[in-house]
Amino acid sequence: MIPSIPQPKSFHALYGAYVTLFFIYLVLPLVVVAVFAFNDSMFPSLPWNGFTLDWFFNPDEPRLGLFHDGRLLRSIWTSFYIACWVTLLSIAVGISNAFLFERHDFPFKNMLYMLMLLPLVIPGVILGISILVFSSTIANWLENTFGIEATLLRPSTFLVILGQFSFIATICTLVISARLRKFDTALEEAAQSLGASQLVAVWTVTIPYLKPAIVGAAIVAFLMSFENFNTTLMLVGSDQPLTIAMYGRLREGSTPELNALSLLLMLLSGSLALLSVFVQRDKT
């Protein structure tokens, strides 16, 4: 079953057909979503009524185009804002954790490492509700004892950021640690023996070396945050991020405007994906 071992022609044909079918299965839903963004009809379904760009650019109801839909544009902004914070926090904690676990030895290190991995095996919905319960407990306590109204700790964008950060930080830690493990500490020592302080050495030698991993982790973190649904659903406040807004529209049934939005998202994540492949490539 490897190329060097002859197999009957029919086997190859069948196997090839299976793999082709698999890839059709993989891309079909995405293609359909993209194509119907241009259908001149009120619903994202057949029949095909001709090509239109209304679902992107038409300024008024009922054929409101994406770029004139204030509510959707606002939710894109909310998602962007959340994703930026989550990325920033996760990268900062990820770098700190990488140095902690790769450079230091301390009691219970393995236990802490296991704990650090836990957020990946906890379902997102449960991460969401546990943070919701805990923050409400604190908020209630603050209100009852001090009379302080802690609106931040009620479902809000702030909680969404914390909820997403709670597991994306693990992913950033893993990506950055993997790169730091390959770093030759002699380079840092060389910088120090040339007169750099430890902090300067890390900043000018180690961090640049980590850059591909940091950028890669940042892209993954940004996308995971932007597309997160499960954790966000439980913590969302009055400002709806994009996934929540889209979910609402999907349930109501929507015009092909949603297809236009989806196509835009695919292009955005596709270009980010290409960027990350490009960045990871020069990791020699």
């Binding site: 995405l30 379904s45 989806s262």
Partner: peptide, 18 residues
């Protein structure tokens, strides 16, 4: 890897249209 980069909502939407 493509489906990973596309939001789960979009993927599910595709299946709904199909």
């Amino acid at each position: 890897l493509v489906p990973f980069w596309v939001s789960e909502l979009v993927r599910t939407f595709g299946w709904m249209i199909l």
